[in-house]
Amino acid sequence: MTAEHWEHFHHQADIGVRGFGPTKEAAFAQTALALTGVITDPEEVKPQEMVPVVCEAPDDELLLADWLNALVYEMAHRKMLFHRFEVKMTGHRLQATMWGETVDVARHQPAVEIKGATYTELRVRPTEDGGWVAQCVVDV
């Protein structure tokens, strides 16, 4: 079974985020963690405040982009970073809870602001061992 983990992949000027998990929800949550990892070390982010997110899209891939863009929006609007994500999906509707804290520049050393999740290399696929992988390129 696919273990929960995340990674980055190279894409020209930007950067790709990829999450793996035994379920689609887990893969989506790991992709969000990968996105935080573009900005800072996720382990440095304390789960002090909870923010709920809801999004809906016509298919899995647009839903992934919507989910990541909702995270980008909450980070930008609230000046926060997030570390823990719980994702629930019903069809193509996603409800999530994110835990994080206000940006602390000295401690987080945020490398770069994310402008948005793009549709480049946007994929949500089952893995060979029955799990899921979700990925896209983010614009920085």
């Binding site: 016509p58 647009l62 982009a65 929006y73 402008k115 948005g116 999740a117 793009t118 549709y119 614009d139």
Partner: peptide, 17 residues
């Protein structure tokens, strides 16, 4: 800044749909 980024995200989806 954030305004332009959000317009990009909003309309990328609207145009694909």
């Amino acid at each position: 800044r954030g305004l332009g980024h959000q317009i990009g995200a909003d309309f990328l989806k609207e145009m694909v749909v």
